[in-house]
């Protein structure tokens, strides 16, 4: 046993490299999952998992995902911030996988802010 087999990656590489040139352009939407100790303890990893699955399905080249530390609002974790170019960033609170899917499908893809889950406009 030993290393992860990387042979399969070659097939994947061909598939992905077609889309690559498109992604070079600046991303217009940034989704940040806050993963401090507080976020992680309350389920930020499941939120990130759900988000990456949505990202794969959506296959959009202008969306970028990143992780960051704690927002300072530990009691409302997991927090997710969605920033769409030209609009104020929206911070969401008490996120879970389901809410993440809804925020992604409605806010990230369609621009409809999900006020029920929102913590603040920043």
């Amino acid at each position: 046993m030993g290393k992860l087999s990387v042979s399969d990656l070659k097939n994947l590489k061909e598939k992905v490299s077609k889309d690559m040139s498109l992604r070079e352009g600046k991303s217009k939407i940034l989704v940040t999952v806050h993963m401090g100790t507080c976020g992680i303890a309350s389920g930020a990893r499941e939120v990130m998992d759900a988000l990456m699955k949505e990202m794969e399905e959506a296959d959009r080249q202008d969306i970028r995902v990143m992780a960051a530390g704690c927002l300072g609002m530990c009691s409302s974790e997991p927090n997710v911030t969605v920033e769409i170019e030209g609009q104020p960033p929206i911070a969401y609170q008490f996120m879970d996988a389901n809410k993440m899917r809804q925020v992604f499908k409605r806010h990230v893809l369609k621009g409809e802010v999900q006020t029920d889950f929102a913590l603040a406009k920043m």
């Binding site: 992860l4 990387v6 399969d8 990656l9 990456m52």
Partner: peptide, 30 residues
């Protein structure tokens, strides 16, 4: 033992970013 090193994966991916969703789903399964 099992070892996993993103530097090797990166070399194999040849410029494709590690956080490409399709790459991540593949790595997770593997």
């Amino acid at each position: 033992n099992f070892t996993f090193d993103t530097r090797e994966i990166r070399a194999e991916l040849d410029g494709i970013p590690l956080n490409e969703p399709a790459v991540l789903q593949h790595l997770k399964k593997a």
